[in-house]
Simulated assay, not measured.
Amino acid sequence: MLLSDLKVGDKAEVTGLLVESGVRRRILDMGLVKGVRFKVLRVAPLGDPIEIVFKGVYLTLRKNEAAGVQVEKTGEVGDGRPMGNQRSRWRFGS
Rank of each mutant, 00 (worst) to 15 (best):
M1Q: 10
L6T: 06
G9V: 04
D10G: 10
K11H: 05
A12S: 02
A12H: 04
A12Q: 00
T15V: 12
T15M: 09
T15Y: 07
G16K: 01
L17F: 12
L17R: 05
L18I: 08
V19L: 08
E20Y: 11
S21E: 15
R26G: 08
I27A: 03
G31C: 10
V36P: 03
R37L: 00
R37H: 02
F38V: 04
F38I: 04
V40C: 05
V40S: 01
R42L: 11
V43W: 00
V43N: 05
V43G: 01
G47Q: 06
G47Y: 09
D48K: 13
I52G: 00
V53R: 09
F54P: 01
K55A: 14
G56L: 05
G56F: 03
G56Y: 00
G56R: 11
V57F: 14
V57Y: 10
Y58H: 07
L59P: 08
K63F: 09
A66N: 03
A66W: 08
G68A: 05
G68P: 03
Q70I: 14
E72M: 13
K73G: 03
K73E: 10
T74K: 11
G75L: 05
E76N: 12
E76L: 13
D79F: 02
D79K: 02
R81Y: 04
P82N: 02
G84T: 01
N85S: 04
Q86T: 15
R87V: 13
R87A: 05
R87M: 04
R87H: 10
R87I: 11
S88G: 11
S88L: 06
S88A: 12
R91I: 10
F92M: 09
G93I: 00
G93S: 01
S94K: 15
S94A: 13
